[in-house]
Design a protein around this nucleic acid. Sequence first.
DNA 1: AGTCTAGGATAGTGCTCCTATCCAGCAAGC
DNA 2: GCTTGCTGGATAGGAGCACTATCCTAGACT
Lengths: 210, 210
Amino acid sequence: MRISELADSTGVSVATIKYYVREGLLSPGRKLSERLADYDDQHVRRLRLLRVLRDVGAVPVGALKALVDATQDRSASVHDMFGKACDALRTETTVPETSDIHLRELADQIVDRAGWTKVRPDAPERDHLAGIISVILDSGLPTDPEGAATYLPLVDALATYELDQIDATQDREAMMEQMVVGQVVLGEFLLCLRRLAHEHHSALRFAERR
Amino acid sequence: MRISELADSTGVSVATIKYYVREGLLSPGRKLSERLADYDDQHVRRLRLLRVLRDVGAVPVGALKALVDATQDRSASVHDMFGKACDALRTETTVPETSDIHLRELADQIVDRAGWTKVRPDAPERDHLAGIISVILDSGLPTDPEGAATYLPLVDALATYELDQIDATQDREAMMEQMVVGQVVLGEFLLCLRRLAHEHHSALRFAERR
DNA sequence: AGTCTAGGATAGTGCTCCTATCCAGCAAGC
DNA sequence: GCTTGCTGGATAGGAGCACTATCCTAGACT
């Protein structure tokens, strides 16, 4: 398959494909000659994946690169690979650098209480959680730590279900793909359902209120 | 309070404050003279809110404007206002224009099954849901509609909890603020916890796998 | 043989979100 | 009173991101 066919069958422009190859998101085609390369189904799949992550998940190109790199490192276990994926997918939202030890402890407590014993002690996500908690506290939302008690079992059930969906009989690249798509697309699904639920419950409470 | 004090006490630069005023995100200060205006605690609160939404939620400036406008329309009920807020906060992620009636029906079925009877029949979120479902199906994720059965009670519990937190004794602007911050910041909180749970559960399943 | 297209390099575009500069008028301290 | 500095307002400029368009020459297809 030539580059123009790849472009046609994925809806991604040739220029963009070249850009992705330059950025290392997509391997170059197998060279047939100096001026001709061959692309296969792997390229189609990868390209579709990249577009879904960008369009639905708004994942920045740099994060996509990190994901690709994580898949490439064949010495890491599947779990390590997923850990790197989680790090990369933490959206570029900025939370304040906490530096507040107390908040970090609070975050660790939440992870403990949830029973998530396998989370790396140095996972960047813990600091991110601490940052979010600081924002929650500053905003005067009454959602911590009592709130955590509400969230934790729900989130745990969610994650259990989602991880159970992953077919462990596949190769690591396919697993990575399922994991990443699950993280991003099902995350969007989740937030979408939550907005719908918010609309319903706000109607129950405030329909008459002006 | 002058503009420089407002800038100091919020950490937002004077230039940015001027920009927000131009964009209609922030009301101009009360004019004391041709070249002097007074800003009060309302401005500080609003500015902090805007920064949280942008930094943590990555809410685009245009969406912030829509939120402000929704609050301004004093004829709408609180619920209508929240509906507009939900519309504005649906992140700018693009899902394919479905146009597929079947998918839209599937989305409506999910809302029905969840019992969210108060969701507007023409809520844009329904189409968004249909778009996400189409992506899920295309991606080969095995998460529908059986998957919905897993998500719906969890999401409903979440939304119930979050809406119950809102203090209905306040004025509409304060309620809007709580709603929006809850939607955005707690949404980020939720996704953060979910990533942590993913890390834990992936370790349980794939720690040894290469 | 001539037209097309590929791949590669590089420069430019459109968008968003600010940031910097300029201006003239007041405010307050000396 | 006069300087210094800050103000609101307008407008231009800039950084970052994700592409997109152009140019070029070698090789492929007809």
